[in-house]
Design a protein around this nucleic acid. Structure first.
Lengths: 111, 111
DNA sequence: TTTATTAATCGTATATTTGCGATATAAGAT
DNA sequence: ATCTTATATCGCAAATATACGATTAATAAA
């Protein structure tokens, strides 16, 4: 994003944006869904389910992990990923904060 | 994003991702906050508040509008933007759906 | 030890995003 | 009709994101 002026915004705004960014791709939404449907931490399964190359899936997993949405243990050949619930709850809270803040003050819009 | 395989995912996944993408920048989060704090639909004020050029702010507004997060009337020299509550509620619902879906099935993670 | 097997990383091509200045547009004011 | 004012749009440069194949790394199996 070229000349990204992230620093010019509050930490809360940056955090929320970063979290949203991690969700901003259908493949990553799909990965989260897969991680949820199985009650265990798969990984190779994701590659079979998604129409993407292994390296691409690995890259998406890395982004989700960097953003803190998932945790992951790498045990040699077999990795293990799972949802980071605390992070999700924080996002939910932050998002609700923004959402409710808006809703209370401005129930009916002017346009 | 090069070779974007969006089509390979469900509509719900794409919608959620698109919505998240619109939120995936601190400037756009800040714009939504500004639109909320005033109980009217300003616009030029945003330019004064944000540390960005007028053309850049206009571009972010356009993206928010394209994503359906805000509505806007352009009345010649004076535009009028405001939150699209229905869109927000839809996103909130979709996100909760994903979130709850995950939480119910997988209360404790394995890693 | 050698040989799978699984996942991460590297390198690369291409598309998209971000940001800005400059310009165009469109209504109101003079 | 001309000038102001407020936005949108265009065109560009630089940074990121997406995707893939090829390679590396690290454990398990033989």
């Amino acid at each position: 994003m070229a000349v990204h002026k992230k620093e010019a915004f509050t930490q809360k705004e940056q955090d929320l944006a970063e979290f949203a960014k991690a969700l901003a791709h259908p493949a990553r939404i799909a990965i989260l869904k897969v991680l949820a449907q199985r009650n265990e931490c798969i990984c190779g399964e994701i590659v079979e389910i998604l129409p993407l190359a292994q390296s691409t899936v690995s890259q998406h997993l890395k982004e989700l992990k960097n953003a803190g949405l998932i945790d992951g243990n790498v045990d040699g050949p077999r990795s293990c990923y799972c949802i980071n619930w605390k992070a999700f709850e924080k996002f939910n809270r932050e998002f609700s904060w923004l959402f409710n803040n808006l809703k209370i003050k401005n129930e009916k819009s002017c346009c």
